[in-house]
Write a protein that binds this DNA or RNA. Structure first.
Lengths: 207, 207
DNA sequence: TGTACATCAGTGAACGCGCGTTCACTGATGTAC
DNA sequence: TGTACATCAGTGAACGCGCGTTCACTGATGTAC
């Protein structure tokens, strides 16, 4: 049995090949043929297994969300159980995902993948967003302020990650992102603490 | 003279064709051949005129930055000369660009275009970022806080625009973006005003 | 004012490339008996 | 335990498609004289 006809775990091999290709050659290089070649199978194999390119990219995207979640959880569980420290750590994981997996970040937040037809993908993305939402929860007091706070933090960290990745300005050159983002959150800490520490001082947030 | 050999303004026609294609069919549909067909010229014409696809996309990207700047200026000049109102209006223009020109937004902030080889493009992008920076300036007191404040606002509005555009969560369904983002900035107003109104209360921002 | 000529913008046919898809096939797997 | 057979994962050749590029060309423009 030197060359088995059945691969064994073609699915996993193709997903991993896709992740590697994204990492080495970027989003545009993610094709059925490239993944097949990297996994060492014929180029018709992925089309057969995933029912076309959309199926493969959806699977890779789902894996991307798991990597994303793992990074946020890893950072969060490093720090003491203080609400602000934990939120800050989750953001650190978010930024690590953007920095360590730039093409995967673009895939996951891009328009290339149709989410609706893949249950695993929808579930994994919900889990990832849930981690961030849970990190924000201690600071939220009521609707709609609570939801708005979550969106504020999310926008902030996502925008920072995107701009950092695209390097669209000298302002983002050569900086220690994790440290700087911590400082940004530190600036906001004032606002967050108004929600967190005191019930009565809520109304300035609603404006 | 029913069919002149020389087009007259091929450059402008191709750029406009590209903008239209982006708007109607998205980023992936932006090709030399599609732009040529839309502009009514042979498909070799844009390759000839712009020295290949990178040149054409750079020109379209430069135009995108001008549209972007125009929207921010238009909104800014609508409101009274109050620093916070003006900053808020500039952000409104930023969000309008993302909503009204989603594919162009993706082109302008994506990785498809090489900025370094196009002087007009670099200049137009610097102008656009300058508008936002100028809007932030009244709230900045000193370095590095001033620069960090600019990055905070920029990240916030950019992240909000990106997430809104990608609709990656129910949290972004069916909302009045301009209104909500105003509320978000309103939440931050507290922090901004600490910088703006009072010189002495500066140090909590540095943390 | 008119003629000759250089320039050059845009043409259209041809090329090679990588892509996703299709399809008859092969050979390993696993079940029924 | 052994045999027959259905299933199905992966093969490899072929296909058509749209892409960017190339290149000899055509015809309008504008300048020199």
């Amino acid at each position: 049995m030197n060359k088995p006809h059945h691969h064994g775990d073609l699915r996993e091999a193709l997903i991993q090949a896709g992740i590697d290709i994204l990492s080495e050659h970027g989003l545009a290089a993610l094709t059925l043929r490239a993944c097949a070649a990297r996994a060492g199978v014929s180029h018709a194999a992925p089309a057969h297994h995933f029912k076309g390119l959309p199926g493969l990219t959806a699977a890779i995207c789902a894996r991307g969300y798991r990597i994303f979640s793992d990074l946020m959880i890893e950072e969060r569980d490093k720090v003491a159980p203080d609400a602000f420290a934990r939120l800050s750590a989750i953001c650190k994981g978010y930024l690590r995902f953007a920095r360590e997996h730039p093409a995967l970040f673009r895939l996951v937040f891009g328009t290339k993948v149709d989410f609706c037809n893949d249950a695993e993908l929808m579930q994994n993305s919900a889990i990832a967003y849930g981690i961030l939402a849970t990190g924000c929860a201690p600071f939220a007091t009521d609707e709609p302020t609570g939801n708005r706070l979550e969106i504020t933090i999310w926008s902030l960290v996502h925008g920072y990650a995107s701009l950092m990745q695209n390097q669209r300005s000298d302002a983002f050159d050569d900086r220690d992102e994790a440290l700087e983002f911590d400082a940004i959150l530190g600036d906001l800490n004032l606002t967050l603490q108004r929600n967190y520490c005191s019930e009565s001082s809520r109304e300035p947030l609603i404006k």
